[in-house]
C-alpha cells in the first residue's frame, strides 16, 4: 500500500516537472531577445544550442554573446531549467567549463531585465532570455520568434 503511494507520488513529480516538454512548450514563459543574429525566428532547439554556445558565431558572422539573468535573481532558476535543463549551479559550472576550456566567450549576467535589454540592444550577435513577469516593454526588433 505504502509502496504504491510512493510510486504515484514519484510519477506525479516527474509529470509535473516535464509538463512543458510533454506538451511541447519548453521555452514558454521566457522572453528571448537577440540583436543582429541573422534571423528573427529561431526554433527552440536553435535557441537552446545558441545558449549552450554550440556555435560561437551566427550565420551572419556576428560573435555570439549569451545574456542571462544573474544567478541570485528569481529569473535565474526558470531560465536555467528551460534553456539548460540544469540548476543554476550546474549552469554556472557549465559556463565555467566552457570558459576555462576556451570553448566559448564568457556569458553576460544581468541583475534586471532592462539591463539585459539594453545590453542586447547595443551588442550585435547578443542573445538573451528572461521571464518577463513585469511586462517590461521589449523593443520589437529585438524580440525573437520562437517556433516550437
Amino acid at each position: 500500500m505504502d509502496f504504491n503511494r510512493y510510486i504515484v507520488l514519484f510519477l506525479f513529480s516527474v509529470l509535473s516537472l516535464n509538463a512543458d516538454l510533454l506538451c511541447g512548450q519548453q521555452l514558454s514563459g521566457l522572453t528571448i531577445i537577440g540583436n543582429n543574429i541573422g534571423t528573427k525566428t529561431l526554433s527552440e532547439q536553435a535557441v537552446i544550442d545558441a545558449f549552450k554556445a554550440k556555435n560561437n558565431f551566427w550565420s551572419n558572422g556576428k560573435a555570439l554573446a549569451v545574456c542571462l539573468p544573474e544567478t541570485k535573481t528569481t529569473d535565474a532558476t526558470p531560465v536555467c531549467l528551460k534553456l539548460y535543463s540544469k540548476t543554476v549551479s550546474e549552469v554556472q559550472k557549465f559556463w565555467l567549463s566552457q570558459v576555462f576550456q576556451g570553448r566559448s566567450r564568457a556569458p553576460h549576467f544581468f541583475e534586471t531585465d532592462q539591463e539585459m535589454i539594453d545590453f542586447v540592444e547595443k551588442t550585435p550577435g547578443a542573445i538573451g532570455a528572461f521571464v518577463n513577469e513585469k511586462n517590461i516593454p521589449v523593443p520589437t526588433e529585438l524580440k525573437l520568434q520562437i517556433n516550437p
Partner: peptide, 10 residues
C-alpha cells in the same frame, strides 16, 4: 566568476 557571475576575468 561563480560568486559575482562575471566570467570575463576568467
Amino acid at each position: 566568476a561563480l560568486d559575482q557571475d562575471d566570467f570575463t576575468g576568467l
